[in-house]
């Protein structure tokens, strides 16, 4: 870590992800024109990256530890509705809505975690179960309590300022949360002992437990973190758009996992970095939103997104291999 030579810098897991991001940025800066790189245009992909990034990093942690949480796809709309129902439909104060919503997310995350550590069922299947269960529960409770599947809410100015407002006309306040949380997670993964535990669990869970790492508690904690993060994004969206509906946030599942993988986390676990996921999320957001700044036929959007993402990941992988075989200037002993 301390050695900041060129060789050690390019060997860091996030270097490849950074390169992929630069490629995508340059591509859209050329084809998207001045709007893409302008102050207002940049908000377009930063807003999307922030919403996705807050969820992607905890998902990245789970993937490093060899787990997965797809129930976030139900948590986002569930939290959005819960916020809308508590503080919109019933008109209770915003803090009550936030606390109850996050509390609900803690319960779901805890259930996910307990099920994963207590049963031998893979986390993909466990969280698929909660994905559908939470979706159904959200629909049922919404109809029961409000008799509709969408609610409106008019949050006070202070709540907008902190959770769901715009600054400089187009920058969502959630970007600040994203940057702050990313910094916190960098410390967590790379500078605190917990980070080493995480990598150890992803490498080999048995030996990690034998080495005295509280893997059970730790796993449950990670599931709670991803669930709460998804809920946070959901409730911020309700505050931002003054509206919530029972539509599924299935796109978040896929997009978060893609961002994590573009960011250099291995699907097999045990390897990855927070900054890498950060770059991966930015890459994904740029590709997704960059399309709308170009003159390409809109029917080709998905094709272009697919090709661009593939190129970004290929660059990342090729670069990583080159970097790992690059030895730098040999030190004389």
């Amino acid at each position: 870590m301390g050695n900041l030579s060129f060789a050690s810098l390019i060997r860091r897991p996030e270097s490849g992800a950074f390169l992929g991001m630069v490629f995508v940025f340059v591509f859209f800066a050329i084809f998207g024109g001045r709007n893409f790189t302008s102050f207002a245009g940049a908000a377009s992909w930063l807003n999307v990256a922030a919403n996705l990034g807050i969820i992607a990093i905890p998902i990245g942690f789970l993937m490093i530890a060899g787990e997965l949480d797809i129930s976030i796809g139900a948590m986002v709309p569930a939290a959005s509705m819960s916020m809308g129902i508590i503080s919109g439909h019933y008109g209770l104060p915003i803090p009550v809505g936030i606390l109850m919503t996050l509390g609900f997310a803690v319960v779901i995350g805890w259930i996910n975690g307990i099920m994963v550590v207590r049963t031998a069922v893979p986390s993909l299947i466990v969280t698929m179960g909660t994905l559908f269960a939470v979706t159904g529960l959200t629909l049922f409770l919404s109809i029961l309590l409000t008799n509709t599947t969408a609610v409106a809410m008019n949050p006070p100015a202070w709540a907008k300022a902190i959770f769901g407002g715009f600054y400089f006309n187009s920058y969502q306040v959630i970007i600040v949360w994203w940057l702050g949380l990313t910094a916190l997670y960098v410390y967590f993964l790379h500078f605190s002992p917990w980070g080493n535990w995480l990598f150890a669990m992803g490498g080999d869970k048995e030996s990690a437990r034998n080495a005295g790492i509280p893997t059970t508690k730790f796993t449950i904690g990670l599931f709670i973190l991803s669930s709460v993060s998804a809920a946070f994004v959901g409730l911020c969206q309700t505050i931002l758009f003054n509206s919530a509906q029972v539509s599924t946030g299935m796109s978040f599942i896929f997009n978060a996992i893609i961002s994590v993988v573009i960011g250099g986390v291995l699907l097999t676990g045990g390897f990855g970095s927070v900054i890498g996921i950060f770059f991966g999320t930015l890459t994904f957001a740029m590709v997704n939103q960059g399309i709308y700044f170009t003159d390409f036929d809109r029917n080709l959007s998905s094709l272009i997104i697919g090709v661009m993402l593939l190129i970004a990941v290929l660059m990342n992988n090729t670069f990583r291999q080159m970097a790992l075989s690059y030895t730098g200037s040999r030190k004389k002993d």
């Binding site: 999307v48 919403n51 758009f241 796109s251 896929f254 997704n288 998905s302």
Partner: peptide, 8 residues
């Protein structure tokens, strides 16, 4: 990829 994603 951005269906039902309000921000996107």
């Amino acid at each position: 990829s951005i269906d039902s994603d309000v921000t996107g």
